[in-house]
Design a protein around this nucleic acid. Sequence first.
DNA 1: CGCTCATATGAACAGTCGTTCATATGATAC
DNA 2: GTATCATATGAACGACTGTTCATATGAGCG
Lengths: 132, 132
Amino acid sequence: MSARTELKKTRKVDTNDDACEVNVVDARKVTSVRRKMHSADAVQLLAETFRVLGDPTRVKIVFALSKEELCVCDLATIVGASQSAVSHSLRALRQMELVRYRKQGKIAYYSLDDEHIGRLIDEGFDHVRELV
Amino acid sequence: MSARTELKKTRKVDTNDDACEVNVVDARKVTSVRRKMHSADAVQLLAETFRVLGDPTRVKIVFALSKEELCVCDLATIVGASQSAVSHSLRALRQMELVRYRKQGKIAYYSLDDEHIGRLIDEGFDHVRELV
DNA sequence: CGCTCATATGAACAGTCGTTCATATGATAC
DNA sequence: GTATCATATGAACGACTGTTCATATGAGCG
């Protein structure tokens, strides 16, 4: 630990948001990381994106859609959930712009909205593979 | 206690893959996608991983740890949450093996558990950047 | 027209989540 | 020893979530 760090040991950093009563151990790190932090909006959006993906039904839906464009009833069969449950899940995914769909007659064909989503799921399964 | 032994707890499995009364539009697609689907355990684990990341406090924590190894109190300052809230969040992240820590005296230094996590967050922010 | 199919959606319910508060542990300092 | 610091954790509470059920919309068919 540097002398410079040692000197600032018990100083409090301006939290510029709320009264957080925690001491700072390494003010240099705190300032450095804070400068890199994304905007509150981006953080909020990303958290909502992850939250939407944080459900087995929706993980299966997104994975399935990363392989094929699929209609709601086939998705329901594949993921083993009711049509209603899948439709509600698709709405959540749509609202986060994770999936889109095209209507052909009475059938709605869903697919992933962009290539980030497929990579997100793949990266996730890569991480999980080491846990099972 | 290792993070590995903490990983267990609430794992719920849905085994009802039969009560689905939906017609199939394209049986070839259904069979093809089904064959590629990951195991129920992997899907469950990935959903839990995403769910843990689906919270602004924890997104900030993981992002911060992708830049620096940090102790709990500095994390609390950076993300603007109480020490208790951060500690609870870190436990959830630990249980999913997203972060690990080393103890040095009374200070616990946290860091990301592997490089997948940092890429997951980066990929997520890439997706989100197009929404804001 | 009436009927069925594919999908969407609102309400309701049981379960879960994230925070706060109070307190515990264990290390360091005096 | 006592005091303080850094962290962990259980309980509790309000807020939120995912499903089911019932129903609605709207396209295609006869």
